[in-house]
Design a protein around this nucleic acid. Sequence first.
DNA 1: CACGACACAAATTA
DNA 2: TTAATTTGTGTCGT
Length: 606
Amino acid sequence: MNSVHDNKDWQNTMSNQQGPLQSPSISKAEDSSPKIAHSTTAFSSNDYTQTTVIHQHSQQQQQIYSSAATTATTSESDTNANRLPGMIAHSQPNTPRPDNSEAPLYRQPIPFATRNVVRGRANLFANETGPYFSSTKPFDNLYSSDKSTLLSVRVQSKMDRGFFLADNDWTCYRRNYFQVSSVFSVHGFNHYYSVNEPHVLVKADDGALYNVQRFLLGVSARVANSEKEIELIQHTPKRDKGPQYRPAPKPITPGGNLSMSSVANNQNIVTFERVQFKTATANNGKRRAAQQYYICIIELFAETDRGQLIKVGSCQSAPLVVRGRSPGHYADNHQERHHPYAANTAASSVVTGITAPLDATAESATPSSTLSGKTEPLTPPGRQQMQQPQPQQQQLPQPMYYSKPQETPQPMMHHGYDHHQQQQPQNYTYYSSYPQYTNAVQPPPSNVSSPMSHPPLPSPYTHHAQVPNYAVHDASHPDPYSNEVYQTNGPTTEEVKIHHHHHQQFQMQQTGPIESPHSGYDWQRARYNSSSSGSSSVPSPGGHQGNEPPPQTYFSHHQQQQQEGRSYSPTTPTYSPSILQQQQARKYNTGGGGAPSNLMNKQQLA
DNA sequence: CACGACACAAATTA
DNA sequence: TTAATTTGTGTCGT
């Protein structure tokens, strides 16, 4: 099984990936979606279906689960065949976990030892797991040149770092960085065609079709049961001494194909680095009471020749808990407990790492996240993979997931944003040059790096590992994620969680949504790269992703280099099971530097 | 209780 | 091996 090997798979996948991802496009018809109609297949559609499906099959999922976790990645890679609608996100474990002991667990999941393995590289492999993202929600407003064929879009995302499971929730510390990487594909054309040749059209709200100049991915976050937006900020390595930005949408070309090298030009991947939540979730740590959850949202925008940004797809992360205090505060008390499964988690861990490759850099700026905000219903996270074919879904009842709670934005909505005019409330400034900066909270220093973009979706969906258990439930729950569902009254947090988890798990497993990794993108790299390459990160200076050469910024140097190989830190450790344990001990650190993760703290503290 | 700022120190990378 | 970088997080003050 792959599972175990995730790491490896990873690599492989990664390497290969490129191909797969893109290509894959699986065409399938989408089920139902009327819109999609035509030949094109839509990924998105798939996603949905998948997701839904997933629920149903909890069992399967479970099975999958295990494998899935691992596989997921791989599978993803696999091919296109599958679709991966949703993204995946893996996150990493790096973060400090509250508990020491436990912490490891998360990681454990990770199968590989990789982490340890070579350091530098290890990262590469590393798989961290992280919250998963739901499958892509299509807005059905993207058409091929014939103006009649709907193109489906699939966005895959993963949280690379900063998250660990605590009490079955994907958790991170507000003060720590997390990273999100995403890739997307258009059913009809992937790879290569990028933006520049757009034979792709987008339907604006007014019903008119516009040529798509390019696509951008933005990250944003909101409160789980509501539409309240949570601000995300990116830092440069300088941290407080450097500028802080809001992650702006970054340009990205479809397909991920990047070749391995990718790198360079490819903007297939967008990574938002050094991202933090501006605020912590309410009740963190403490009892269940009413734990608040946040959800990361990744939105795909099509930029028209007029500069308007129209949302064409999005995906959400599993619910996330953001701790506002130092790990020491959480350590003793709550540990994270994982479910029994947790153990599994470890096992499952799976995952592959993900770091992303960063190909893309982002650049453009745009409004970002905020905008979209709402939206999407999310689908469940998916993961990709399972190897097994699942039976899929057949039915799908539906999951609430989809349902939009209230909102439901529907697909079509595009928000059209004009860059120029952006609606967003926030102040974004766009810098054309620096995409990253766009929103900058602060003006970007010239050099600085780009800000990170938004975090993608970390959904808490459980990891792979954890998963096992959940298997159970079905769709019955509403999705937490989706705000939609719960929104108002919704279930309390707990409920939510539950759902999430389940969903997540389910989804993940089954669906395969997970895009993440899969596809070939090298997430790992991405991370590493993140900064530099363009894609990602924020601040990094460079901003440009795509076409333009990235500016250098802080990152640039390092990062760029990194892209290729190294990662920078943290990213990725993978864990192998056995290793895991060991690892646990170690934690992984994050990269660079340093922080001591758990160890110190606790110990010291203790 | 949370958040922001300051600062230390570990884990990695170069 | 050593220096530099990066970043987790303890602590303090608000």
